[in-house]
Simulated assay, not measured.
Amino acid sequence: MSSISDIIERYLIKILNEAPSEVVQVKRSELADLFQCVPSQINYVISTRFTVEKGYIVESKRGGGGYIRIRKVRFPSPKAYYDVLLRLIGSKISQTSAEDLVARLADEGLMTPREARMVKKMISREVLDLPIALRDSVRARMMRTVVTMLFASKGE
């Protein structure tokens, strides 16, 4: 059975995919009414499921005329996308952020589902049994290598 968060996420992705400009603007209170939940549930879904690592930009304005605007990020060239991914990874990356990035790469067809499962396992805290600061640094180096290899193979 799907959780309310899963249902809200699927709804938002569906309307985003149907929007010609891949931008959707919604009101938190209207979504809460539609799904019969509290507005904080909407906040939770937006903040955890529509992240930069997953390929979204979220703008929010609170108050009576407030809104949430979600935009699917597109890049003008593979080089621009590659540069942004390397900046996102940085010198340290958490397991959650790295997994979100791997899911995004798989969703966009840059990596197979099998490759995504392998990379997720390799970057897990179970495999990288190191102190946190070191683990996040090693994970970032691994992710930069994966991204570099994915983009290098696109040029072949």
Rank of each mutant, 00 (worst) to 15 (best):
P113S: 14
S124V: 13
A98I: 09
Y81G: 01
L101D: 08
L101Y: 07
A80R: 05
I93N: 01
T145A: 15
V84F: 09
T96H: 04
A152E: 11
R117H: 01
V84R: 11
V119F: 02
I132L: 11
V119N: 01
M111L: 15
L105A: 03
V138A: 14
M118R: 06
E99L: 01
V138T: 12
G109C: 03
V147Y: 05
D129Q: 12
L101Q: 07
D107Q: 13
L130R: 06
T112A: 08
S97M: 00
L134A: 09
M149W: 06
T148K: 15
L110N: 12
L150Y: 05
D136T: 10
S91N: 15
R141V: 10
R141H: 12
R114W: 05
P131V: 02
A116T: 11
D100L: 00
L130T: 05
K92D: 01
P78S: 15
I123Q: 03
A98V: 06
L105Y: 03
L85N: 04
V147Q: 03
I89S: 06
E99Q: 07
L110I: 14
E126T: 14
T148H: 14
L150D: 05
A140E: 01
V127M: 08
D83I: 11
S97T: 00
K121D: 12
A140C: 05
K121P: 00
A133Y: 06
L105G: 01
L128H: 06
L110E: 10
D136W: 02
I132W: 05
K121G: 08
P131E: 07
M142F: 12
M142Q: 11
A106V: 13
A140T: 02
L105V: 04
A140N: 00
I123M: 03
S124P: 14
R139T: 09
M111I: 15
R139Y: 12
A116D: 10
D107C: 10
G109T: 04
R114T: 11
L150I: 15
P78D: 14
I123F: 02
E115T: 15
P78K: 13
R125C: 02
M111H: 02
L85R: 01
E115S: 14
G90L: 04
Q95H: 12
Q95K: 14
R135S: 07
S153E: 09
M143W: 06
R125A: 09
S97F: 00
S137W: 00
R144N: 08
R144P: 00
D129F: 12
Y81P: 03
V147N: 03
S97W: 00
A98C: 07
G109H: 05
A98P: 09
V146A: 08
R141S: 14
V119C: 01
Y81W: 13
L101T: 07
D100F: 04
A80Q: 08
L134C: 02
S124D: 04
E115H: 11
Y82G: 00
K120M: 08
V146T: 09
V127T: 12
I93T: 06
K120D: 06
